[in-house]
Design a protein around this nucleic acid. Structure first.
Lengths: 192, 192
DNA sequence: CCGCTTAATGTCAGTTACTGACATTGCAAA
DNA sequence: TTTGCAATGTCAGTAACTGACATTAAGCGG
């Protein structure tokens, strides 16, 4: 490892986060981030393909955890049940990182350019989950619909959880999936 | 109306579409688009806030039609039924514009920057539909979930319809909403 | 301890998306 | 015709990125 043993990439992420919170995303230049991290602007763009991406570094972890969960979970119920349990399985990790993810999410929510990138990341997650479901034998069209609906629920739950962390994530997932079941059972279904 | 009676905005859109198809989005500069439209680069950015937006000009029509449908449709069934019928109501219009929208969509699909913008547009539509449902008395959380699931279905149906226009859009919507109902009826559903 | 290799960084010039300030043009109403 | 205004032109400037090439410093064999 030449030059600097402590990874410049991580310093850049922290510098960016700090500066974005101080002055906002739009009024922070890549050169300023690089300067605070002690490197050159060119080095910034060697570590991140564009300015937005510096905020989405840890995204791979969540994707990996969720796809692993979908792949490894015991097989029963529907694709949506599988996703439900996969989401529950990452809930503790998500809750443990709230102190970090909440301000980051607030920044994303008030910055359109970052919101767009986040939507792209969610779509990427949807594609991965579609593939994971398909690998388990779920027909392609069904897998895609389930993954899309699943990530939609995931996004809503995360959003309401960021707004109010009172309810544990696992319960929020339970409630959201229950709401979904209600949504698509249109007419009177007499109990028992 | 000074200068040019034929609207520069429309010429810019057509010039952009042509150049994007000829050389791709990334290898087309805003200055080139403006030149083909007979105006200055500065004028381009007066009509469109950024280069991507030149491709999403007619988006407002669809949003207006869908929200109007959700607002004006007779009241029966669930929020998802309402969205289902709203989607069906715009199907003929969508099908009549396929010759225009299909190549445009192909361009978007192979250009990440445009894909991101499209996702943002879909999210904007989701917000509008959420509001329209809420205006009809649907509880906020329920409205949001329904709108999110609805636009997810809409996106999937449009995508498969672009890939293969054989099945009419209205039928594709019917099938997708039926699949959704299946998805959330978890356990054993014995055939007949 | 020394030179060699090489991955990470620095340097620099260039393109392009976008913006603000100000001047100019041409239709339209008075 | 004159005047007002909306659309456009002109120009200078910022900042996100990119390619080409030089430089540094760890690690390794000698």
């Amino acid at each position: 490892m030449p030059r600097n043993p402590d990874h410049a990439r991580h310093r850049l992420q922290e510098a960016a986060l700090a500066l974005f919170h101080e002055h906002g995303y739009d009024r922070t230049t890549a050169a300023e981030i690089a300067a605070r991290a002690g490197v050159t602007e060119r080095t910034f763009f060697r570590h991140f393909p564009d300015k937005r991406e510096v905020l989405f570094g840890g995204q791979g972890n969540l994707e990996a955890a969720l796809t692993a969960a979908v792949t490894g979970l015991p097989d029963d119920g529907t694709p949506l049940d599988l996703l439900h349990r996969a989401f529950r399985s990452v809930a503790p990790t998500l809750e443990s990182k709230r102190h970090f993810s909440a301000p980051r999410q607030a920044l994303i929510d008030r910055t359109p350019a970052l919101k767009e990138r986040e939507l792209a990341k969610i779509q990427s997650l949807t594609a991965l989950l579609t593939g994971a479901l398909a690998d388990r034998g779920v027909p392609a069209a069904r897998a895609r619909l389930a993954a899309q609906v699943g990530t939609a629920i995931f996004a809503i739950v995360m959003d309401t959880w960021f707004a109010d962390p009172a309810k544990p994530l696992a319960e929020a997932f339970d409630a959201a999936f229950a709401d979904l079941a209600d949504l698509s059972q249109p007419f009177a279904r007499p109990p028992a």
